[in-house]
């Protein structure tokens, strides 16, 4: 191990981390929005939209992010849709994550006892109100552990961004290994930086899970 080399690479990795985190969180945010919309469409049994989201979820849950990114980045320009690499990463992560988040929200919605909806109705709330004020808040809080697991999964998946020439952590490591052949130093830094990015989320996840187990609704 050459500490001086590692210190000199440090700023490059820091830049890469910032880029990875930025695109990662934009992707996660997009995934949350898509996920909620899809789950609502399926739960309320909206015609047509329900079938469309069903196909979307199956399609994106059963293909690797790498293939999705290749399709967005290399294939779509051929039919005239040009997206920048960053937007591609963000969109790809959002679409992949959206499918997973939708499943998580949906099972959260399904797990709510029917008596909740019935009680809301007997209190005179209409369907939209019941959904907005009674069902949704409970579903969101009961699916939080699943959501955090998805967030970790998505942030891990950002490692494939290097294939569409985004200068993320993986790209930086590969590039530096290729140029200076300091394999051990580069890989050690890579591990350290992924830990910096993901350990806090992982710790938060297990903390939240423990808290929620004590604060379940309805019992």
């Amino acid at each position: 191990m050459d500490w001086e080399v590692m210190m000199s690479y440090f700023p490059l990795y820091r830049e890469a981390l910032l880029l990875t985190v930025r695109i990662g969180w934009q992707g996660v945010f997009l995934a949350l929005i898509i996920g909620v919309l899809c789950a609502v469409a399926i739960h309320l049994k909206l015609p047509v939209l329900r079938q469309v989201t069903g196909v979307y979820i199956e399609l994106f849950r059963n293909t690797p992010l790498l293939v999705q990114l290749f399709f967005l980045y290399f294939a779509l320009p051929k039919i005239g849709i040009r997206i920048s690499a960053q937007a591609c990463g963000c969109l790809g992560l959002g679409l992949l994550g959206g499918a997973y988040m939708a499943e998580t929200f949906r099972s959260g919605l399904e797990n709510i006892a029917p008596i909740q909806a019935e009680s809301a109705q007997s209190l005179g709330l209409n369907r939209v109100q019941a959904f907005r004020y009674v069902i949704l808040p409970q579903a969101v809080s009961s699916s939080v552990p699943g959501l955090l697991a998805n967030v970790i999964f998505l942030l891990k998946e950002t490692s494939v961004f290097s294939t569409i020439s985004l200068m993320d952590l993986m790209f930086t490591a590969k590039d530096l290994i290729g140029m200076y052949a300091k394999t051990m130093e580069c890989l050690t830094l890579l591990v350290i930086f992924y830990l910096i990015m993901l350990l806090p989320v992982s710790i938060l996840g297990s903390f939240v899970e423990r808290r929620l187990r004590h604060a379940e609704f309805g019992n």
């Binding site: 394999t183 992924y194 992982s202």
Partner: peptide
Amino acid sequence: LEIVRIMPQMVLLFIVYFGTTRV
């Protein structure tokens, strides 16, 4: 478990394929 959960598989691949062969 924590290592596997946090490290992207790509990083593990690089460590085994480029790292261990080197060391």
